[in-house]
């Protein structure tokens, strides 16, 4: 363990991803759910940047740039949906939203 290499970054990325996934599964508040999703996206970004750096290929960074853009758009739409949902149901709690059941 002399030098920080690719795998260190990747491990950080995996752990961050897992934290985000856990948040998506456990947390009940839709907003926090969204934040967990952002965490997962960021974990992917970190992995991409690390690969880009250590493989000497700038394409990964361009991909990250695009992901950030799409994530921003997605957050905008998602939050708009949450607002619309709240207007109808007066809740941001996932357990109250069981319309996925027949």
């Amino acid at each position: 363990m002399s030098h920080i290499g690719l795998q260190h970054y990747l491990i950080v990325s995996v752990l961050l991803f897992s934290i985000g996934l856990l948040g998506v599964i456990i947390r009940r508040n839709v907003l926090v759910l969204y934040m967990s999703l952002e965490l997962m996206l960021n974990a992917a970004n970190l992995a991409l940047v690390a690969f880009s750096r250590f493989k000497n290929n700038l394409d990964g960074q361009i991909m990250v740039l695009f992901i950030i853009t799409v994530a921003a758009a997605e957050v905008a739409v998602g939050l708009a949906l949450i607002v619309a949902l709240y207007r109808r149901r007066q809740t941001t709690h996932v357990e109250d939203l069981t319309t996925l059941k027949l």
């Binding site: 998506v24 599964i25 456990i26 009940r28 996932v94 357990e95 939203l97 069981t98 319309t99 996925l100 059941k101 027949l102």
Partner: peptide, 10 residues
């Protein structure tokens, strides 16, 4: 099929 999003996620 609970209808609960998070069960599906799990």
């Amino acid at each position: 099929q609970t209808g609960n999003l998070q069960t599906y996620a799990l």
